[in-house]
Every structure is written in C-alpha cells, then in structure tokens.
Amino acid sequence: MHALAMLAHRRGGSLTSAEIADSLESNPVLVRRVLGRLRDAGLVWSTEGRGGGWSLARAPRDITLYDAYAAVEEGQIFSRHTHPPSGACEVGRGIGTLLDAEFRDAERALEEQLGKTTIAGLLRRILAFDGEPGSH
C-alpha cells in the first residue's frame, strides 16, 4: 500500500524499486517481490532499462486497499487448528466449526472495510496528515 501510494503521488511517473525501498527502509529485492505480486494482480507495471521503473497500471481511484491486500497476502487472516481437536472433548467437538464461522465473518468485514478506501483516498489522507495523534 505504501508503494502504491508513492506511485500515485508520482502522478504518472515511475519509481525504481530502490527508490521505493528507501522510503520503506527495506531491501529493493524484497520490494521487487511485492511489486511482482502487484503486477500479477494488474495493479502496477514495470519498464526495464534506463529510465525504467514501476508505475500504476490503473488510476489510483480504481485501486482499493483490498485489491492491494488480496494481491500480496496469502491464505486466511486467522489461523485455524492445524489438526482437528479431540472429538471426545466437549469443547473440542464444536470449537472449530464455530470459530471458522466467526473468523469468516471477521475476514469478510475486513475485506469490506479495505474495499471502501482507494489508493487515491489514502494518498489524500496521507498528504493531509500532520503527524499528530488523532489528526486524520
């Protein structure tokens, strides 16, 4: 999301993975991995060679935080039992099914919330943020 906001702020220009990594205080190789997933999802594209770099593939108003989240995160948000609990246990018999339903509802709520905010909207809030707690 950080990289997408930077690319939106660039307004049609491109950034190298090293420039993005500097802002993230990260390694360009790790940034390229994430950008590769964003590219696979159709959110960014890259050009190689001198003057190349990464750019948004869609308008910032057409990319939601959920689009970005879905592109880079794998699997379920909440971990489940790695193996079923004992069916002989009164708690173990029902906990998995009930927690799965609770977790699915929470995951849907997260997806819905992230789908409400676009990269353009996030960037507006970032640029208006003055660094004070509660100032957004």
Rank of each mutant, 00 (worst) to 15 (best):
V34L: 06
G36V: 01
E48F: 03
P85F: 03
A120I: 09
D40L: 00
G75W: 02
G115N: 07
G49A: 08
S46Y: 02
G87R: 11
Q76S: 13
A57F: 02
A120G: 13
R125H: 08
D62P: 04
G49Q: 04
L65V: 08
G53Q: 02
R33V: 14
L122Y: 10
Q113A: 14
S46W: 03
I95H: 00
G36S: 05
G36K: 01
Q76L: 12
S55Q: 07
F103L: 04
L127P: 08
L110N: 05
G42L: 02
A71N: 04
L127A: 10
R58G: 09
T97V: 11
L43K: 02
E102D: 11
F78G: 11
C89H: 13
L98Y: 04
I77Y: 00
L99S: 06
I126M: 14
R104P: 03
H81R: 08
P85D: 11
T97S: 13
C89N: 14
T82V: 14
F103Y: 14
A57S: 10
A41E: 04
R58E: 15
L35D: 01
A109M: 03
G96W: 04
W45D: 11
W45F: 10
R39D: 12
W54P: 04
P60K: 05
P84N: 06
Q113C: 12
L123P: 10
Q76F: 11
G92L: 06
S79P: 11
G87C: 09
A106W: 00
V72H: 00
D100E: 12
G94K: 06
E90Q: 10
R80M: 13
L122K: 08
V91N: 10
S86A: 15
L56C: 11
P85M: 05
E74D: 12
R104D: 12
D40Y: 00
R104N: 07
V34S: 11
I63G: 11
A57M: 01
G94T: 11
E107C: 02
H83V: 15
V44A: 01
E102G: 08
G87N: 10
E102P: 06
G87L: 13
G51Q: 06
D67G: 07
E102S: 09
R50E: 13
I119R: 07
G36R: 02
Y69K: 00
K116P: 03
G75Q: 01
P60T: 08
A88F: 15
C89T: 09
R108L: 15
T47I: 01
I63Q: 09
E112M: 05
R33P: 11
G115V: 04
P84L: 05
E107A: 00
R37Y: 02
A101N: 03
S46A: 15
G94I: 08
E90P: 09
H81F: 15
I77D: 03
